[in-house]
């Protein structure tokens, strides 16, 4: 029994490591040091002034809390909402911004990291 348990744990660990390597959206150390792509996501967030409506900590202001809504939005939902906007709700379309188009997946990663609770503060820094 004991050996079976070890095998199972090992198998689980291997599976988890494999999944993480494939799907790893972001890397974060100490809650605020992030990989370059996630950092670009933060810079895009800041440059396009998303905090104007969603709050500097993504907590929501006139726009919804992204800490909450990122738990529900798929990557495709997110792309659609950001690039095409939701005008009836006051969300502008960002498809005219080259920066947004280029870094939308980075922004997705950053916001997921915030929503997951892995990135513990809004302002992030590079891993050095």
């Amino acid at each position: 029994m004991k050996s079976l348990r070890i095998v199972c744990v090992l198998a689980l660990l291997t599976w988890a490591a494999g999944a993480a390597a494939e799907d790893k959206l972001y890397t974060v150390v100490d809650g605020y040091k992030v990989d370059d792509k996630t950092l670009e996501g933060f810079r895009t967030w800041r440059a396009l002034a998303c905090d104007r409506c969603h709050g500097a900590n993504q907590q929501g202001l006139v726009g919804p809390s992204l800490l909450e809504s990122m738990k529900r939005l798929t990557r495709e939902d997110f792309r659609l909402a950001v690039l095409e906007g939701r005008l009836e709700k006051g969300m502008p379309a960002f498809s005219s911004s080259d920066r947004m188009v280029k870094h939308i997946d980075d922004l997705y990663a950053y916001l997921k990291g915030r929503s997951d609770g892995a990135i513990t503060r809004a302002k992030v820094e590079p891993i050095r």
Binding site: G55, N57, Q59, G60, L61, V62, G63, S65, L67, R121
Partner: peptide
Amino acid sequence: GIGLAAGLEKDSDGL
């Protein structure tokens, strides 16, 4: 007053 319109109470950053 714009902050009143939504969710400042949802601030989870412990600020």
